[in-house]
Design a protein around this nucleic acid. Structure first.
Length: 369
RNA sequence: GGACGGUUACCCAAGUGGACAACGGGGACUGACUGUAAAUCAGUUGGCAGAGGCCUUCGGAGGUUCGAAUCCUUCACCGUCCA
């Protein structure tokens, strides 16, 4: 269990597999995010049809509502949300960043004011692990502190706390049917990132994550940070780039040796009326699509593109019909998952370099059909 | 035939002498979104320069005034009531 096997490599890019109690995941993988035990606007059946092989859920949100103990009583997260493939839960560390106005950090943990009703809640490494054990995901994450990326002093503090908390997470962990991943922090600062990668990878985690990226830093800083961290992280464990996301970032990430991605982007953009495609983003609400009979992407094999025109999708959006969010989510998730399968093929064929260059050129040209 | 009330930008609707190119809402248009407080948020919506600026607008015409969407006259249309 939780063995990572590398099947192919092409420079830094790799194809691997990781065994979990709910099946094997093949990497590179993109995992859609279902914070509240649902990938918004998409049914589990639709996710299956999209060949999604793992989804995320969130510790903080499910602890507040409906409560992790209730989920445990109801048979665990897989049964509760009717998803029988692997699940990864985030630890609540991201909420330290995203709910910054409603929490106080100390050395021991974080005190949150609930965004739902204002009540006070305490999250510590031990508590985060206990919640994640109640939820019962296949992969659980160390409780970390995701910090703003460009503040050196703060990044260092947050990194040190993250390391202390990582140790405590390991000690707190009781179940052995869940893989606990450690998280590297350190902002955009190469020396911090190197140190963090060294410390975290010395703790014996079965997988490692890079946190604190795609939170406002430049692309250049993000890509460079990935290189710095991956140079230190052991190659025989899966590498998870948390919260990434865009078509090009997936390519850039795999190129640098990333195996696992997750992101809210495909589902959020869908609800915000945008389509992610090989050739850039389409704001489907644009007036120019009103009479456009073409699919979002003529080469796309997803359900949405196989059946519906841009004009119809735009109509659904303008009429505020909720099917718009579903059809666009299906397309966007398909785009990213299909990209990962393409990248796997290219790695197996040892053509990843040229594949990546061509895909990025098409993407950055933003030439729609 | 008479008495009131009304006519404001794409729509609804505020504004009753100067701070009005005109509140607000809808609609329309455009952009943003990366481990989800996000079916959200931001900008534009008379024309032209596109910062201060200039020009044309508040049913039509005429008038009062230094100055009018706002006051007066008249015409047109809509509504309610009385014959």
């Amino acid at each position: 269990m939780f063995e990572f096997t590398i099947h192919n490599t092409d420079n830094y890019a790799r194809v691997g597999s990781f065994k979990t109690p709910h099946g094997e995941i093949i990497t590179p993988i993109f995992a859609p995010v279902g914070t509240q035990a649902t990938v918004k606007a998409v049914t589990p059946a639709q996710l299956e049809e999209l060949s999604a092989s793992m989804v995320l859920a969130n510790t903080y949100h499910l602890y507040l509502r409906p409560g992790d103990e209730l989920v445990a009583k109801l048979g665990g997260l897989h049964h509760f949300m009717q998803w029988q493939k692997p699940i990864l839960t985030d630890s609540g560390g991201f909420q330290v960043f995203s709910l910054t106005d409603m929490r106080k950090i100390d050395e021991d943990g974080v005190t949150f004011k609930s965004h739902i009703d204002g009540s006070t809640h305490r999250l510590t490494p031990e508590k985060s692990i206990a919640i994640q054990e109640n939820l019962g995901a296949d992969i659980i994450m160390a409780f970390d502190e995701c910090a703003p990326p460009n503040d050196l002093a703060y990044s260092k503090e947050a990194m040190i706390r993250t390391h202390m908390w990582a140790e405590r997470c390991i000690k707190a962990k009781k179940r052995n049917d869940q893989a606990l991943f450690g998280i590297v922090q350190g902002g955009v600062f190469a020396d911090l990132r190197e140190e963090s990668a060294r410390v975290i990878s010395s703790m014996g985690f079965p997988g490692h994550a890079i946190g604190g990226l795609s939170v406002g830093e430049s692309k250049k800083d993000m890509y460079h940070t990935i290189e710095v961290v991956n140079a230190v992280l052991p190659p025989d464990k899966p590498r998870y780039l948390m919260g990434v996301g865009t078509f090009e970032d997936l390519i850039e990430g795999v190129w640098r040796g990333i195996d696992i991605f997750d992101c809210v982007l495909p589902t959020r953009l869908a609800r915000h009326n945008a389509a992610m495609t090989r050739y850039g983003r389409l704001n489907v609400m644009n007036a120019s699509f009103a009479t456009d009979e073409k699919p979002l992407d003529k080469e796309c094999q997803c359900y949405t593109c196989q059946h519906f025109s841009r004009a119809y999708l735009r109509h659904l959006i303008v009429a505020k019909e909720m099917l718009a969010a579903t059809l666009l989510s299906i397309h966007n998730i398909h785009t990213l998952i299909h990209l990962t399968t393409d990248m796997r093929l290219a790695i197996q064929n040892k053509t990843f370099d040229s594949y990546a260059k061509e895909a990025l050129t098409i993407y950055r040209s933003k030439k729609t059909q």
